[in-house]
Simulated assay, not measured.
Amino acid sequence: MRIVIQRVSHASVTIDSQVKSAIGPGLLLLVGIEEADGPEDVEWMAHKVINLRIFDDENGVMNRSILDAGGDMLVVSQFTLFASYKKGNRPSWLRAARHETSIPLYEAFCARLSEGIGKPVGTGEFGADMKVELLNDGPVTILMDSKRKE
């Protein structure tokens, strides 16, 4: 499981010219799931994201989590995070999980985040052509991979 975490001032996802979800200050998460992922990846990633201290404290030091900051979350599925570009110039998506694997894990991840922060998280729509808009705050952008755990 791979996640691009972006601290944002605001973010939204639009599908067919309709805003599906919008958030104020918080985190935009672009989530990629591969066939090798399972419930343990969901749990590890959710715990890390919820407790990641990337919001400024009163001294301007990144020392607060999304829980401490009271921020929102927007979670968007992003199979392209598992692009393979080793051969040729057209990426391959073979590592990205098929819908029957990725949808339940994506939904479980969103539910776990919502449970962890005590409020609903915004989502996109799995498989839809989405327009994601954001104002990156900082900018703070972090790449997390459940298999590397760096």
Results as ranks from 00 to 15, higher is better:
V4H: 02
V8T: 10
V8M: 11
S9C: 11
H10Y: 13
S12I: 01
T14H: 00
D16C: 02
S21T: 06
G24Y: 09
L29A: 08
I33F: 03
E34Q: 15
E35M: 07
G38Y: 02
P39H: 11
D41G: 03
D41S: 12
V42R: 03
V42P: 07
E43A: 13
M45H: 01
M45L: 15
H47W: 07
H47E: 14
K48C: 03
K48V: 06
K48A: 03
I50T: 14
I50S: 09
N51H: 15
R53D: 02
R53T: 04
R53H: 04
I54W: 00
I54A: 01
D56I: 03
D57W: 05
V61T: 13
R64E: 09
S65D: 07
L67Y: 05
D68L: 09
A69Q: 14
M73N: 04
V75F: 06
S77M: 06
Q78S: 08
Q78A: 06
F79A: 08
F79I: 10
T80F: 12
A83E: 14
A83F: 14
K86L: 12
P91W: 11
R95F: 13
A96Y: 04
E100W: 05
E100V: 07
E100Q: 13
S102F: 01
Y106C: 05
Y106G: 03
E107W: 01
V121G: 05
G124E: 06
E125C: 05
A128N: 03
M130C: 07
K131D: 10
K131E: 12
E133W: 02
L135N: 12
L135W: 12
N136T: 08
G138E: 13
T141G: 03
I142N: 02
I142Y: 00
M144P: 00
S146Y: 03
K147P: 00
